[in-house]
């Protein structure tokens, strides 16, 4: 009994480790390359540990040729604004749909489901044309506005709020709270697990997003980290992969750090929503 259990456990662990290794390999290789000199990268031999540590030089190049600070700042501003707008809009909306009775509730629910089905790629052309005619290309507005209403957020909060007891809201009403008061004082303080889970999804998605910034931003000053990298590769680095990898390392670092810090919540978030990233 114990033996088969141990065998099964061993197989499971081996498979998991193998999977983890496959997924981690590119990242490990990136870390390795970021520390190699130009000449070593192009040698025929392949070693994971650089023969000479070129980290300092490569990081210096990355920082020197690209305004890394600007890129990271843009990333923070864009992701932060998107997240704040999404939450501010989605929470009252989800509350109303979950707990208030009104005529159009079913219609709204249908619209939310419909919204979940439409990818950004389908609407990107009309959005681009609209931003262009509004002369808003190359701005934070163009980067943030299309994502400020997240049907995914509405859907996620809706599921979470539905599970909140009605009596809690009834009690709040009897205690004299307005509907907005209920959202601020009862719903939000009890919705932190859902909000954190959503924050992780939202920030990861928009930090890594290349598609939309590539469409609306051509000015380096508004480039988000992935777009900045693209510019860097095209214009400056050329075939200087060491510097490129160093830059990539820098822009992925905030997310990696955030993940390691909030690992438990991240897993909670995924199990809670029943969705995978």
């Amino acid at each position: 009994m114990t033996q088969t259990f141990n065998l099964g456990r061993a197989i499971r662990l081996t498979l998991l480790s193998l999977g983890a290794l496959i997924f981690l390999a590119p990242y490990i290789f990136m870390i390795s390359t970021a520390g190699k000199a130009q000449s070593e990268i192009f040698t025929s031999s392949l070693s994971l540990i650089p023969t000479q540590f070129f980290y300092l030089e490569n990081f210096a190049k990355a920082f020197g040729r690209v305004s890394m600070g600007q890129l990271l700042w843009n990333g923070v501003v864009v992701c932060g604004l998107i997240f704040v707008f999404q939450v501010v809009i989605a929470i009252p909306c989800a509350y109303a749909m979950a707990k208030l009775k009104f005529g159009a509730a079913r219609l709204l629910m249908a619209l939310v489901m419909l919204g979940l089905l439409v990818p950004i790629h389908a609407t990107s052309l009309p959005l681009y044309v609209a931003f262009d005619s509004a002369a808003l290309l190359n701005s934070y507005t163009a980067l943030v506005a299309p994502f400020s209403i997240s049907v995914f957020a509405i859907f996620l909060f809706l599921q979470f709020f539905r599970a909140m007891p009605d009596d809690l809201i009834h009690a709040a009403r009897l205690d004299g709270m307005s509907e907005l008061g209920i959202v601020m004082r009862v719903i939000v303080p009890n919705a932190w697990p859902a909000i954190t889970a959503f924050a992780i999804f939202s920030v990861v998605a928009h930090w890594n997003d290349l598609y939309w910034p590539l469409i609306v931003v051509s000015n380096q000053a508004y480039a988000t980290p992935p777009l900045g990298l693209l510019f860097f590769r095209a214009a400056e680095a050329g075939d200087d992969y060491g510097a490129l990898m160093a830059a990539t390392l820098i822009i992925t670092l905030p997310l990696v750090a955030a993940f390691l810090l909030a690992q438990k919540r991240f897993v909670e978030g995924i199990t809670m929503t029943g969705l995978k990233g």
């Binding site: 009596d167 009834h170 009690a171 709040a172 009403r173 009897l174 009862v186 303080p189």
Partner: peptide, 28 residues
């Protein structure tokens, strides 16, 4: 409901989970 000056005790008690007992009592 808020204007009726009516108080209610619920079967589930419906206490605000994020507030202490004292804060709960103070809400109304």
């Amino acid at each position: 409901a808020a204007e009726r000056n009516v108080a209610m005790v619920f079967q589930s008690y419906a206490l605000y989970p994020h507030l202490t007992a004292g804060q709960n009592i103070a809400v109304p």
